[in-house]
Write a protein that binds this DNA or RNA. Structure first.
Lengths: 196, 196
DNA sequence: AGTAGAAAATGAACAATGTTCAATTTTGAT
DNA sequence: ATCAAAATTGAACATTGTTCATTTTCTACT
C-alpha cells in the first residue's frame, strides 16, 4: 500500500508545523529556527527542508494558522449582535484581545517580512483579505450606497486605524494604552469611523 | 594636545553612523550589518564595536536620526495653518509622505525590535513621545477641557490610527491604499477623529 | 627629541543560524 | 527477497554577530 509513505509524510509535516507554532507562541519569531523546530518535532534539519522550502515558508505557514485563528475569534465575536456599529466594535475588541492573549503569535504575524525579491503566497494574501471583508460587510450594511472602490478604501482605513492603535499599544516605545483605556478608545475610534 | 584623539574618535563615530544610515536608506534593515557598515565607513569591524555596543545599538542610532527627520517634516508641515484640524491633517500627510519618500528608513524604524530582555534607551523613547506631543498639542487646542490622561489616550488613538493606515498601505499583503485614495482617506480619518 | 603608557584600530577566530547534499534507512511493488 | 523510490539523516559550508590579542597611533612627560 502506497498509503503508508503518504501518511508518514503528512505526519512529519504536521509535527514540524506544530513544533514551529509552539515555538512561535513560546519565544516569538526569533525562536522559530530550523534547528529548534527540527529538535522540537523530533526530526533532523534536512527533514524540515523536505516540507518547507526555507525558514520563511515555515514562518508563513505558522502565520497562516495565526491569521485563521484571528479570523475565527472575529467571526465569533459578532454572534448575536444586531447593529453594524456594535458588530464593528466587537470585531475591533476581538482583534485587540487576540493581540493581548497571543502577543507572540500576533507580533510574529506582523513582524515577519519577506525579502523584497520574494512575493507573499497568494493563499496568504487571501487570508488577509478575508479579515478585511469581515469589516467590509459591516460597512456595506451601514451604507449600502457605497461603491466598490470606496468601500474597499474605507475598509482599509477602518482596519488600519484599529490595527495601528493595537500595534502601538503593544510597544514599549510609545507607552501605549491598555486595559479599560484601550477598550474605550477602541470604542471611540470605531464609533467615529462608523457613524453617519 | 589631547584634542586629536577626541576629534578622530568623533570622526570615526560619525562616519560609522553615516555609513549605517546610507545602508538603511539603500537596502533597509537587513543591509545594516557590522561588516557592510565597517567597509562602507572605511574601518574594521572592531572599530564599529568601539563606538556601538552591538548591531542593535547602531540600528537604534540610525532610527533616532529617522525619528528626528520625521519630527522635522511634521513640524514644518503645520506652518501657516490656522485651525487645529487643518494642522492635524497636515501632520498626517507629512507622516504619510515621509513613509512614501523614505520607505526603507521608515520600515527600518518600525520593523526593528530589541530582544525582550533589553530595554529601549530613554532618549529614543523621548523622541517618540516628542512626535506624539505634536498631535497632543493640536488636540488640546481643539478641546482645552480635556484632562491629562484623556488627552494622552486620545493622542495615542489618533497617532495609532494614522500610523496603522500608513503601515498597511506600505504592505503588499493588504493591497493597501496609495495616491489620492490614501490622501483622501487620511483626511477622512483625521476629520472624524478630530471633529466635535 | 625620545619614550612609556593610553587610546584607537585591526582582523583572525569563534558562535549561531540558514542551507545543501551525499549517504543511509525505510517503504512499495514485483 | 529484491530493487527503486521516498524519506531521513547529519556533516559541511556560507553568512553574520561578536570577542579579543595584537599592532598602530597618539599624548604626556622628561
Amino acid at each position: 500500500m502506497a498509503g503508508l509513505q503518504k501518511v508518514k509524510s503528512e505526519e512529519t509535516r504536521k509535527r514540524v508545523l506544530g513544533a514551529a507554532v509552539d515555538l512561535m507562541e513560546e519565544g516569538g519569531l526569533d525562536a522559530v529556527q530550523i534547528r529548534s523546530v527540527a529538535e522540537r518535532a523530533g526530526y533532523s534539519v534536512g527533514s524540515v527542508y523536505k516540507h518547507y522550502a526555507d525558514i520563511d515558508a515555515l514562518i508563513i505557514a505558522v502565520n497562516s494558522i495565526t491569521l485563521e485563528r484571528i479570523h475565527q475569534v472575529m467571526r465569533n465575536a459578532t454572534e448575536g449582535l444586531e447593529t453594524p456599529i456594535d458588530r464593528l466594535k466587537a470585531l475591533a475588541h476581538a482583534y485587540s484581545e487576540f493581540s493581548r492573549e497571543n502577543p507572540k503569535l500576533w507580533k510574529g504575524l506582523f513582524d515577519h517580512h519577506l525579502p523584497e525579491s520574494r512575493s507573499i503566497p497568494e493563499e496568504h494574501k487571501l487570508a488577509n483579505v478575508a479579515l478585511l471583508s469581515l469589516i467590509g460587510g459591516e460597512l456595506k450594511a451601514l451604507d449600502p450606497s457605497m461603491g466598490e472602490d470606496e468601500l474597499a478604501a474605507r475598509t482599509r482605513t477602518c482596519f488600519g486605524a484599529v490595527h495601528g492603535l493595537v500595534t502601538i499599544s503593544l510597544e514599549e516605545r510609545f507607552a501605549g494604552l491598555s486595559g479599560d483605556t484601550l477598550s474605550s478608545e477602541l470604542d471611540f475610534l470605531v464609533q467615529r469611523l462608523a457613524e453617519a
